[in-house]
Simulated scan of single mutants.
Amino acid sequence: MPYLVGAFSLILVAGLLALLPASLHQYLIYDRQAILDGQLWRVLTGHLMHTNFWHLAMNSAGTLVIAWLHGRYYSFAAWWGRLAYLGLMTSLGLLIFCPELRWYVGLSGVLHGLILMGAYEDIRVGEKTGWLILLGVIAKISWEQIFGAPAETASLINAPVATQAHLFGALSTLPWLLVAYGLNKKKAAQN
C-alpha cells in the first residue's frame, strides 16, 4: 500500500515541521516578498506549514480521505511528484494573481488539486464517483469564491481561509490533466 506510506509520510513531515520552534516557522511559510527576493523553497515548504494543531489535523484528515479514495492510483513517487507539482503550481498562481496575499500556510490548495487528479483517474477507469467528486469540488470552490469560507473554519485555524489557494490548487490540475489525457489516449492507440 504505497499510497498509505505516501499519505502518512506527508502527515509526518508536516507534523515534524509543526514541532520546530516558532522562530523557524517564519523561514518556511509562503511569504510573497521573501519568495520574490529569491527564497524559492517557500513555494513548496509553505504548503507543509500550518497555523495550529486544528489546521494540521484538518489537512491530515483530508490527506487520509484522499489516500483512501484514490491512493490505489499512485506509487510513493507519484504521490510526492503530484504534491510537488501542485505545491509549485498553487504557489505560482498565488504569486501571479494574488499580490494581496502576503503569506499562506497549509495543504488545502494542494489537496483540492490532488482530489481532482484522483477524480480524473476514477472517471478514466469508469467509476461514476469521479464525476460526483468533480462536481462537488467545483461547487465548493465556486461557493467559496462567491461567498467566502465559513467563519467557523477561520476561527478554528486562527487565520483567514485562503480560498484562492483552493482555486489555484484545482486549476493546477488542468495542465496535468491535458498531459495525462494525451498520454492515455496515445497508450490506448498503441494497444
Rank of each mutant, 00 (worst) to 15 (best):
L24K: 14
F76L: 12
H50D: 04
M89Q: 14
P21L: 02
W80R: 03
A77F: 14
T45S: 10
D37C: 02
S75E: 03
Y85E: 03
L36N: 15
L92W: 01
L92P: 04
M49G: 07
M49L: 12
G62Q: 07
G62K: 14
S75Q: 06
L24T: 15
A84F: 07
H55M: 08
H55D: 00
S60D: 00
L83S: 07
G38I: 07
L69Y: 08
R42T: 04
L36C: 14
F53D: 01
L64A: 11
H55W: 13
H47C: 11
G38E: 03
V65K: 13
L88A: 13
G71E: 00
L19V: 08
L88M: 14
L19C: 03
V65E: 02
L19D: 05
L19T: 10
R72C: 07
I66L: 11
T45K: 00
Y30N: 13
A57Y: 11
L64I: 13
T51L: 04
I29T: 02
A18R: 15
S23R: 09
G81T: 05
R72G: 15
N52H: 08
V65L: 14
L24C: 07
F53R: 11
Q33N: 07
G93N: 06
I29M: 09
S75F: 02
L40A: 12
M49T: 09
L88V: 13
H50W: 06
G38R: 05
H47R: 13
W54G: 00
A77Y: 09
D31Q: 15
Y74F: 09
Q26I: 15
L44G: 01
V43S: 03
D31H: 15
W79D: 10
R82F: 13
Q39S: 09
Y30R: 14
L48V: 05
H47K: 11
T51W: 01
Y85Q: 12
V65P: 11
A57C: 02
Q39K: 15
L40G: 04
Q26M: 01
W68L: 14
F53E: 04
